[in-house]
Write a protein that binds this DNA or RNA. Structure first.
Lengths: 112, 112
DNA sequence: AGCGTTTTGGTACTTTAGTATGAGTATTTG
DNA sequence: CAAATACTCATACTAAAGTACCAAAACGCT
């Protein structure tokens, strides 16, 4: 009786340990399987040659602001914003700001 | 010796079973935890009074197309698209199409 | 200090977006 | 069927976006 109980306890402990291990490892793998969504890929930003300022403007575009509003937010003139936007469009190979948003998302440089 | 082996095998089997159980249950719970994202809320579309056509145009806007391109895709005139876009902006309380995209996402009527 | 890139900004221009208004044609629904 | 709603399209306009070109100031790095 005493021996049997010991074995059962050992089995129970083993069961719990491996159950937790299973949950833990699974959670870890799921976490590393898809960092694809919502993560910003800095290497892509560098790859297409987007400057710091240009990226800031891109984020403002993404949020739906006009050139004038972006200028106010960043304390710049609208001319400067237009220059940045034009450069962003060239680097993202986009014809419009809405298309730039799409391409930026595809490149993981903007949150989806 | 023979008895000990049996016990070890039993423990090993128990361990494997509970390990798999842990992985399985964890995967199941993670799957049911967040189906929240990326789902389109039809009730919201109705709530703001977006018509079928208007919603189709909104999707095209979201994809980054110009009014002219949208007109071609839906076999309509650019004038018609402009009318739809204007109505969409009013219903979404947006000043620009980029802002409309943002608001539409917030309302879950466009995929994030 | 000097060089290259970035950032800033201007002018002038073209294109796209968006508004206002009106109106004819479906489509649906009481 | 009649009325309301949705869909279509046009004209004329204003506003915003985008392009092209130039140039000075600011940074970063060697």
């Amino acid at each position: 009786m005493a021996g049997e109980s010991k074995i059962e306890i050992v089995i129970a402990v083993i069961a719990v340990i491996f159950f937790i291990l299973g949950v833990y490892l699974n959670k870890k793998s799921l976490h590393s399987e898809k960092p694809s969504d919502n993560e910003i890929d800095q290497s892509q930003i560098d790859a297409i040659g987007l400057s710091k300022r240009e990226y800031e403007v891109l984020i403002q575009i993404h949020k739906g602001f006009s050139n004038k509003e972006i200028a106010e937010h960043l304390f710049l003139s609208e001319s400067t914003i237009k220059t940045h936007v034009s450069n962003i469009l060239v680097k993202l190979d986009a014809k419009r700001r809405t298309q730039a948003i799409q391409k930026a998302k595809a490149l993981q440089i903007l949150p989806s």
